[in-house]
Simulated scan of single mutants.
Amino acid sequence: MSDIFIIAEAGVNHNGDIKLAKKLVDAAKSAGADAVKFQTFKTESLVSKAAPKAEYQKQNTMTDGNQLEMLKKLELSYNYFKELKEYCTEKGILFLSTAFDFDSIECLESLEMPVYKVPSGEITNLPYLMKIAGTGKPVIISTGMSDLDEVGSAIKVLRDNGAGTMTLLHCNTQYPTPFEDANLMAMLTLRERFGVAVGYSDHTLGIEAPIAAVALGATVIEKHFTLDKSLEGPDHKASLDPQELKAMVTSIRNIEVALGDGIKQPSASEIMNKAAARKSIVAGRNIAKGEIFTEDNLAIKRPGNGISPMKWFEVLGMSAARDFCEDELIDL
């Protein structure tokens, strides 16, 4: 597994259809993601009958209604999650899902999910955080809509109740997020303030923001994707299609390699260009044996496999040990 952990967020983009969910697994695997993540919930435990849709949900579904009606159509049974976990294992990609209620946490525990994802909306849910911490497993925490005090309080609850290692994801929960609100530098603030690994859960359109986050030091990237942006549902329009997801993963892997080890020294690929690009001290004209080297009879030209021009003043005033032709490398 690579150092940058890429989560392909299928979420509820399966539209309640297990066949579509499996196709999302296939697309995530084909794109090269490390994990594909869904959302596990019992609608009646997640929202009340009075919970209105978010504005973006109204726009994307083109109806008002309430969250309960919308989410009920997007709910998968616990048996389907068992089937998805087995399918992911068969395909060689890690299965993850975000739980939104206690029963769903227990469902995912029964599937031996190795790491838990706390979504932005649950970061102030004390009993939920305690339940997640009680698994003792690593936790990835999305911090959308949060300030530093709220993030700190969530971390304390998780630590005090036995959670494993933590990774904080900077996040903005507008779908799609305007680029001017992405605020990628806040990811570095989280790392500095809390001393933990950080990453980025992205809801901007396109792939530029997550790639930039990797260059800034993100260790986890999460991004929504869909098989078809025109499908009915709240999240499709702000998701990547399979080709875009693959382009994002490829770009991240390239940036990951390009970041290197931080040691400033010539690389193996550029050593061969050293002589061609650098310069040496050469004869500016024909020089006779015994003649004194001066600024008038010396020059600095390529190639760079002779005496370095950094020794210019050491060479000046010395006498030629032999005859030199114009442009010939000087030796002492």
Rank of each mutant, 00 (worst) to 15 (best):
K19T: 08
K23N: 15
A28N: 06
K29A: 09
A33Q: 03
A35S: 14
F38W: 10
F41M: 05
S45A: 10
L46I: 06
A50C: 05
P52M: 06
N66P: 02
M70Q: 04
M70S: 08
L71S: 04
E83I: 07
Y87C: 04
T89D: 15
G92S: 04
A99K: 02
F100E: 00
F102T: 08
L108N: 11
S120I: 07
A133Q: 00
S142W: 03
E150L: 12
I155S: 01
H170I: 04
N172P: 02
Q174H: 10
L184G: 02
A186L: 13
E192F: 02
G199P: 03
Y200Q: 06
S201M: 00
E208T: 14
E208A: 15
I211C: 11
A212M: 14
A213E: 04
I221H: 05
E232K: 12
E232G: 01
E232C: 01
G233V: 02
P234L: 09
P242T: 11
L245M: 04
T250R: 12
S251T: 10
I252R: 01
V257K: 15
D261E: 08
G284M: 10
R285Y: 08
E291T: 09
N297E: 13
A299N: 14
G306Q: 09
V315C: 12
M318R: 15
D327P: 10
I330C: 08
